[in-house]
Amino acid sequence: MFDRLEFLFGEATMALRRNVLMALAAITTVAVSLFLIGGLGYVYFRIDEYARTLPGKQEMRVFLRSGAPYAQITETAKQIRAMPGVASAVWMPKEKVWEKERLQHPDLTEGIENPYPDAFKVTLSDLSSAGKVAGAIRAMPAVEPAGGVVYLEKELEFIDQAMRVVRWLGSVFGSLLFVTGGVLIYNAIRLTILSRRVEVRIMQLVGATRLTIRAPFVIEGIVQGALGGALAALMVLASHQVFARFIESLKADVTSPPFPLGLALAGLSLAGATYGLLCSVVAVRSPMRLQ
């Protein structure tokens, strides 16, 4: 068994060495495509996570008209909670808010009448719907028309746009490069078969099994894909470091969690190896017909 594997892997190594440049092209293309798909996917979720963890980023305050009847307030709460993209809407009666304020800042609040209106604290589940939700709430009769909805509009818009760009880049360029990487692996294997046609012919003449003839080329494809995946993991690590520094420069009290390098290496290498396996199996099918 060990002897057999030694022969097959020896042949695969030979195959890789025959077309180093083509193999490198395939490996780097697979790496870039996996980086764009997997890596930008990771960045996307990190941005999303960042937006969720920062206090106030996904929240908006809705101030109600002074003297709005209780029934109207209840109806407004119902309507807000039913909106798509809204996770929760908590009523904050002005008396409670003022009481809390007085407890926290007794000196500043002494002798002053309660200036706060009744309000809702609305938490969003989907950042991209913030604009729509804000517009719909502003149109409600119980809501104060001027400055009735307050939220971090610019920050949310920026994060939403960043996520759109990442999603778009990842899906369009990633898919294109993924297909290109597959074609390159396919071509690399075909070229190797061509350059090793004498070996293939000898194996066919002496009655080597199809598995013996094909396995080295399939191993070559798997190795190319796995190396591409590993390279992609390192590229994601680099982009993670850049992204983390950027976020930390925006807000000093935020620290990014450590990059799961082991998981990324294993995951992307496995994805690359699977892809390499598929491409090489397709590549060995047609030119390896016994003739």
């Binding site: 004498v198 070996e199 012919r201 000898i202 066919q204 003449l205 002496v206 009655g207 080597a208 099994t209 199809r210 017909r289 016994l290």
Partner: peptide, 22 residues
């Protein structure tokens, strides 16, 4: 069948005209 061909060829020795040496 095609998958039986390798076994058939192990029952014979084939000498090609062009030697086919590595």
């Amino acid at each position: 069948r095609e998958r039986e061909i390798p076994a058939l060829r192990r029952q014979m020795g084939i000498i090609p005209q062009d030697f086919a040496l590595l």
